[in-house]
Amino acid sequence: MGKKLSPQKALKDLSTIKNTIDRATGAEIFTNFIYSTGTLLAISGLVVIIGCIANYHFIATFGPTAAIKKAMIIMWVSISCLIGLVTLIMFAIQGKKHNMGFFSYYRHIANKAFLQIDIPLEIMCAIFIILFIKMRHYEFIIPACVIWIAVLFTSLGAVYVEKSFAIVGYIFLTCGAIGLLFMSHMQLFFVAGVFGVLPVILGLLMHGRYKQIREKHIAVLNPSDNRKEGAPPREE
């Protein structure tokens, strides 16, 4: 029998295993997270566009009666719930893909560093929204929600050093500011633009970014792809 393993060596080996597994799964999880976020943005954008068309159609046909307003509120709450449900399902699917439970996957993405940046800013947004409700400036709630989303994306961009998240965050931030300053009387148009068209475009761009990262990854991993033409194939 060989030399008996010391507790120090055992600890070192376990730590090596843990670090390697973290590294092996981390990159894959993150690129898939970019892909699923892009898909989620595109899906939610399409749903919101349909909602805006329906809202416009009903208001134009039946007028802004109390019943229609109530129906529209129910419709928008349903749309929000649907998007929330799709998000949860996507989290669950991604978690399963990486042999993790829903909460493990969530903890992996929303790690401590992310929460430290994100939570104070989100609390600030929530305070502003409550303030607008108290002051009865309901027209500012939607732009404030846009800024809330912007905070989420910029935090993801800062923590994961990923420019696609940061860019999406800054675009939403600009839109939120424009909404707060100039578009308080064009709510439906604003919603259609910022929650409908924009997420579809950004979602598709994020898919492009995902492909770019994958290709870059493959190019780094397969240096033989860049070899001169006619040179013998080299791997091992």
Binding site: L5, P7, L11, L14
Partner: peptide, 8 residues
Amino acid sequence: IKMLEGII
């Protein structure tokens, strides 16, 4: 891995 855990 179990063996390592056992040693520790």
